[in-house]
Design a protein around this nucleic acid. Sequence first.
DNA 1: GCGACAG
DNA 2: ATCTTGTCGC
Length: 225
Amino acid sequence: MKRFISISLERHLIDIQTKIASSVIIADLFSEDLIAGVDQAFMGDMVISGAVTLDFPMKIHELASCTLATSFPYIPGFLSFREGPAAVRAIKALRKRPTLLFVDGCGINHPRHAGLASYIGVVLDIPTVGISKNVLCGSFETPEEVGGVSLLVMDGDKVGYVLKSRKNCRPIVVAPGHLVSVESSLKLVCRFLRNHKLPEPCRLAHDYVRNVKEALRAPNQGGFS
DNA sequence: GCGACAG
DNA sequence: ATCTTGTCGC
């Protein structure tokens, strides 16, 4: 395999992640007043982030997006430096600040306990939960039954869960990002599951960012020009 | 040393 | 993540 960044830059980024991790608080200090989800898409050398806030019946309340030039390659363990900046700006663009944010990516279930969800949570000081479709690190047993859950462990510590959220779908990984306990991260995800593999905040943010991307690729094809 | 490796 | 049609299973 090839190196994408220098040893010195990697060391610097690891320092940043170590600081992020030291700022992370794993405890229930959140409210469910305004739930939100954020997700990113790529088009050429652009990163597009879409943030959505939800209303009571889990419907979209507000949308905001941010498109930036991609400034960092994808390197496992360093995703926050690639997607974090755009995500932070998309969330800041929301008129109402979320009180709980669902992020597509790892939380404390990360080599340095500083995944994208933790990064966004600390930078914005907003409670976050990380949801990923694949395991980056940690050991676990694969749940087979729908609704089945197993602990995700790292060095003897519980850092999250692997959840079989829907039939015929691979299990998803859930972990706290910031200001949410390990137990609550799972309860929250289960509470916002609605017959899909991913919880509504993530699914709606994903749909939204895909629409933003399509609109950028085909300007004026949405009518009213 | 070898393999794994969020999106 | 992204490139992509049909297709198998609920």
